[in-house]
Write a protein that binds this DNA or RNA. Sequence first.
RNA 1: GCGCCCGUAGCUCAACCGGAUAGAGCAUCCGCCUUCUAAGCGGACGGUUGCAGGUUCGAGUCCUGCCGGGCGCGCCA
Length: 592
Amino acid sequence: MTDLKRALGEVVEAAFAAIGAPPELGRVTPSDRPDLADFQSNGALAAAKRLGRNPREIATAVVEQLAGDPRLAAVEIAGPGFINLKVASGALSERANGLAADPRLGAETVAAPRRVLVDYGGPNVAKPMHVGHLRASIIGESIKRLYRFRGDEVIGDAHFGDWGYQMGLLIGAVMDESPAIRTLVEAANAAGAAPADLSPLEAVSLADLDRLYPEAAAKGKADTDYRDRARRITAGLQSKQAGYYALWERFRAVTQVALERDFHALGVDFDWWKGESDVEDLIGPMVTELDAMGLLVDDQGARIIRVTRDGDKRELPPLLVVSSEGSAMYGTTDLATILDRKRQFDPHLVIYCVDQRQADHFEIVFRAACQAGYAAEGQLEHVGFGTMNGTDGKPFKTREGGVLKLNDMIEMTRDKARARLREAGLGEDMTPEEFEDIAGKVAVAALKFADLQNFRGTSYVFDLDRFTSFEGKTGPYLLYQAVRVKSLLRRAAAEGFDQGPVTVAEPAERDLVLTLDAFDAALTEAYDRYAPNALAEHAYRLSQAFSKFYAACPMLSAEPVVRSSRLTLAGATLRQLELALDLLGISVPERM
RNA sequence: GCGCCCGUAGCUCAACCGGAUAGAGCAUCCGCCUUCUAAGCGGACGGUUGCAGGUUCGAGUCCUGCCGGGCGCGCCA
């Protein structure tokens, strides 16, 4: 089912072709001047330049070709040669009926589905997630849902940071603190078998790890012996010594519980919980293979891959594959992960939803992967995002200056949502469970919509009061609109009112149908540019268009034919809005 | 030093291959609830798109320089 924009585009493109102009110039876009038209084509101006003719003359010739199209109520030339198209009400009604009958509400699927892997979230073992993980989770989840909805086969991978020197540091620190654990780990290492009784490990909590890690990291920097011990432990873990491994598994387990709680609270879930540890065994053979390909170069005692290319504006650092001390580096693991994913899933596209600051790192890794033949040019995409800042414009910190834990942020937002609901006098007739459910949904909507309404590349200011406001361009406003339609439809159903064929008559109805029609264009843009904000914008516009329609066009009290037409519009709006919100990772309660 | 990103209304942000009068929300002011959830709707106010040049019929968008801000620049991840 084609939207009006594209259907009209085809007609105008054909008209351009008919007069000997490049057809692609006939592209139709929503009008910049809604007072004059619904759609416009600017191509006559460009065609005039190419053909050396007068733009208005070309526009006139094109308009003649369009004459008689029943979908067009008016075709006019304005200004220097803009072609303005006004859609006939009949065509709008027909389009509305098509949308209402379409389970996808006008959304197309991609012509050639791909296998796509979305790498997002990026939690670390032993460290609670903090606000920095929020954007990756929100944006990544939305991109995953969007790609899947458009027909691609999509895997979301949390890509756990669960390996390396940091683990060695922590194992040492935990053993220092707990003699019981030290005894257990050392015994298991000596025995070469997993401990029979794991119960002493249960004392290890995420809070302990979170407390110990910064101390251990600091000590490791200052104290050479301490660092060397951590490295030995790391090596022991990597060779899977039973005691270290058992303790590490405990780290993973306690972390995952907290991560799942946070992700669940945000409505984020993954298909894969793979981590750096999963590719550990691949690294040795991969290095051998890279060496055999002749890609590895010895440099200052390390083994590197040079990735500079002709035309680079500056010299990009090489990929450090093996450090001078013989260990694999961050980029090595990333490269091995690319190889692993190729073997496991053979993706056409891997989307890395990671902070923009890692742009250079990914460029280096991607180039190396292409050189090694682990991926083709364009198959690896770093979808970077900006930072979330405090009201002072600097990266967000707590009042004490520390990093805010994600769980605390979610809790703060929930508190705010509860307070807002109570202020509005809502929830008094609800069970505590329902109230909590709604508060949770309002909080998630507030956080996610505040994030996703901005283009991902730009940084934005975190302002909880603004995000949780029920007024204006916020998540709670969108939920309110959706809930209002639900309430209306419930009443209509209770009265036994049916939905029926749409007849577009009022201006508010025209605008609503035109907005509904723009859904696929928003999805396409969001998909092509990895830009959920295009979809967020559409959801907001749809809500606004509906709200105007709601104010201008009474339903329950209207004549039966008008009523059934408007109820169909309301129903289609609700379904498209809920769908758009779902693709943003936002779910709508039944009532508020 | 080199490189990347950013600079749009008082504030927070948009702007679809370069198109008409640069749009929303908040804030401020004025209207609208005995009728479907007013968490809403209508209206007003608010701009030399950091500055200076250039390309173009046309520039927030492309190019050059400058000013201001953020970030990154091999043995952490």
